[in-house]
Design a protein around this nucleic acid. Structure first.
Lengths: 210, 210
DNA sequence: TCCAGAGTAGACCGATTTGTCTACTCAAGG
DNA sequence: CCTTGAGTAGACAAATCGGTCTACTCTGGA
């Protein structure tokens, strides 16, 4: 008011910071939710951590749950994009599907920066806090899992596998995937992905014969 | 004070209700925690639901977390006792280990009253809310999983399998178990136990050859 | 008979929760 | 120039949180 606030850095942040406040909120909220749980993290902690004003949060999101849904969408796309690229790198078909477990191994052992330090599967964790299966949050998590299964199924079909068989194999691979995640997180069994991979190899081999 | 409170039912509840207040609190807390999550359930809800006074709760437990630890112990023993009896019923050895998945199938589809309506694995759910792996709650959950794996391993050793091989097979079976639980809970895939069983059969069969 | 332990009901505490609101700044576009 | 939208800082509200405490009742055993 009385003193002129110094105007260093004039236009530097015009649109240079593409990451707008909304995205900052989502990514800060994700980190905190993922590490500490949803109900354990209050709005004010997200605000203090991100340095964003409360009014701004409620300008972008109607409620905390609204923010959570945006966070789920964000994590969903980050995770699926990462996994899809890992599978694409590995080539095509049933052998590539084993790359899933190499990717998991990297994730569990914190070799994937974009996924943040491993703290289990965010979607499983969310379901633990939103038990009602009809709740939007729970449904979003179920959809995420289904989408990944579909991703695998498509990969297998590209290798000439029938829709039905590809679906069946993908379901088995996903079951192993979830098992590995839980073993890694709950039991601290960081080698779980390797174990799952050895089981997966037999499944894929078995599907070859048919 | 002024009017004599009527004394119907004189001694009937002397020790007839073996389930003392402490146990009532634990079992009420478990039901609420399991359905709604730990942080989502307040002390007062547990009190109102059980009809027990706040003073009584803090007479038995120092803190909410103390109560939670007692709840974990309670669920741990209920679940392990149930599973052990199911496995014992099924006979001995590697074929009996497949009974694990029949038991899971009954659990997922709410055919086991003592386990309460299926809402995932309470221990996985707890870890989702207590991410710090050094936290007593998280460690209790890890121990529960390890104990069940040991249970399976012993069963397999009774069938003449070596300690090392039994451990390896048990680890694989547990990975399938966790995968099935997640698929059933998050994705609502209630047939997941049957799928896991079909995979388990190949593991056990493979172990026969060795 | 009296005392101790377990119980009840509920007021109370300070901290924290989600969410609203006022008063203000700043930058871009018509 | 002037409006508008996005932003800030932070007071505020109502509810709820975990936990403490007082005053009381009841029961069993010494």
């Amino acid at each position: 008011m009385l003193s002129t606030s110094v105007n260093i850095i004039p236009v530097l942040n015009a649109k240079a910071e593409l990451m707008d406040k909304r995205q900052q909120l989502i990514s800060t909220a994700f980190t905190l939710f993922y590490q500490q749980g949803i109900h354990a993290v209050g709005i004010n902690l997200i605000l203090d951590t991100s340095g964003i004003a409360k009014k701004t949060l409620y300008h972008h999101f109607a409620t905390k749950e609204d923010l959570l849904l945006a966070v789920l969408e964000y994590r969903d796309s980050v995770f699926r994009d990462w996994l899809a690229s890992r599978l694409r790198q590995a080539g095509s078909g049933r052998i590539a599907s084993l790359a899933l477990f190499d990717a998991l191994d990297d994730w569990f052992n914190d070799r994937v920066a974009v996924l943040q330090p491993f703290a289990g599967c965010f979607f499983i964790n969310c379901c633990a806090e939103f038990g009602d299966v009809t709740h939007p949050v729970h449904r979003h998590c179920a959809r995420h899992k289904a989408d990944i299964q579909a991703l695998l199924s498509e990969l297998l079909q590209q290798d000439g596998m029938s829709y039905q068989q590809a679906s069946a194999v993908a379901a088995r691979l996903c079951l192993l995937k979830e098992g590995a995640i839980v073993q890694a997180y709950v039991c601290g069994e960081l080698e779980a992905a390797k174990l799952a991979k050895s089981l997966a190899m037999e499944i894929v081999k078995g599907a070859d014969i048919n």
